[in-house]
Amino acid sequence: VQSVGTPSLGVLAAWLLVFFCGFNALEATQPSLASRIAPRAMRGTALGVYNTLQSLGFFVGGLVGGWLVKSWGSPALFLSCGAALLLWWLLAWPMQTPGRAAPVSQTP
């Protein structure tokens, strides 16, 4: 017997497939984008900053998410994630795909 609001196994599997396809695409394209737009001489630094900020994001996200669930429950976490998603979507909508960075000139 399935309760109201509980998705079937097939629906859950489909949503998980969509999520992980998007996650895997972003996991590969974001560092690639960071190295593509950084000047050649600064690519290592750009990727180091990217990875550091990504790790700090994991930490702060877990900290704030745990605090939200403890203070106001799971619905508050869900609504906060939805609001963050909507805000990011509105900010990202007008963005254009950047080209490659100009090569650094080597002067003797």
Results as ranks from 00 to 15, higher is better:
residue 1 V to T: 14
residue 4 V to Y: 15
residue 6 T to N: 02
residue 9 L to W: 13
residue 10 G to V: 12
residue 11 V to C: 07
residue 11 V to L: 14
residue 12 L to H: 03
residue 12 L to E: 03
residue 15 W to I: 14
residue 15 W to P: 01
residue 16 L to Y: 07
residue 16 L to F: 11
residue 20 F to Y: 14
residue 21 C to L: 13
residue 23 F to P: 01
residue 24 N to A: 11
residue 25 A to R: 00
residue 25 A to M: 07
residue 26 L to P: 02
residue 27 E to N: 05
residue 28 A to K: 00
residue 28 A to D: 00
residue 29 T to F: 07
residue 30 Q to Y: 10
residue 32 S to M: 07
residue 32 S to D: 04
residue 33 L to A: 13
residue 37 I to L: 05
residue 39 P to Y: 03
residue 39 P to T: 07
residue 41 A to Y: 01
residue 42 M to Q: 08
residue 43 R to C: 03
residue 45 T to R: 12
residue 46 A to E: 03
residue 48 G to P: 03
residue 49 V to T: 12
residue 50 Y to P: 00
residue 52 T to I: 08
residue 53 L to N: 04
residue 53 L to A: 13
residue 54 Q to T: 14
residue 55 S to T: 11
residue 55 S to L: 13
residue 58 F to I: 09
residue 58 F to A: 05
residue 59 F to R: 03
residue 59 F to P: 01
residue 59 F to W: 14
residue 60 V to Q: 08
residue 60 V to F: 13
residue 62 G to M: 09
residue 65 G to Y: 08
residue 65 G to S: 13
residue 66 G to F: 08
residue 67 W to I: 02
residue 67 W to H: 09
residue 69 V to D: 02
residue 71 S to Y: 05
residue 73 G to M: 13
residue 73 G to D: 11
residue 74 S to G: 01
residue 74 S to W: 15
residue 74 S to L: 15
residue 74 S to D: 04
residue 77 L to R: 02
residue 77 L to I: 02
residue 77 L to Q: 00
residue 79 L to T: 04
residue 80 S to R: 05
residue 81 C to R: 03
residue 81 C to H: 10
residue 82 G to Y: 06
residue 84 A to L: 13
residue 85 L to V: 09
residue 86 L to A: 14
residue 86 L to D: 05
residue 86 L to S: 05
residue 86 L to Q: 09
residue 87 L to P: 03
residue 87 L to F: 14
residue 87 L to Y: 12
residue 88 W to R: 07
residue 89 W to Y: 11
residue 90 L to P: 01
residue 90 L to V: 10
residue 94 P to T: 06
residue 95 M to I: 14
residue 95 M to T: 14
residue 96 Q to K: 15
residue 97 T to E: 12
residue 98 P to D: 08
residue 99 G to K: 12
residue 100 R to S: 07
residue 100 R to P: 01
residue 101 A to C: 09
residue 103 P to A: 12
residue 103 P to E: 15
residue 103 P to K: 05
residue 104 V to I: 00
residue 106 Q to D: 02
residue 106 Q to K: 05
residue 106 Q to G: 00
residue 107 T to M: 12
residue 107 T to W: 15
residue 108 P to Y: 04
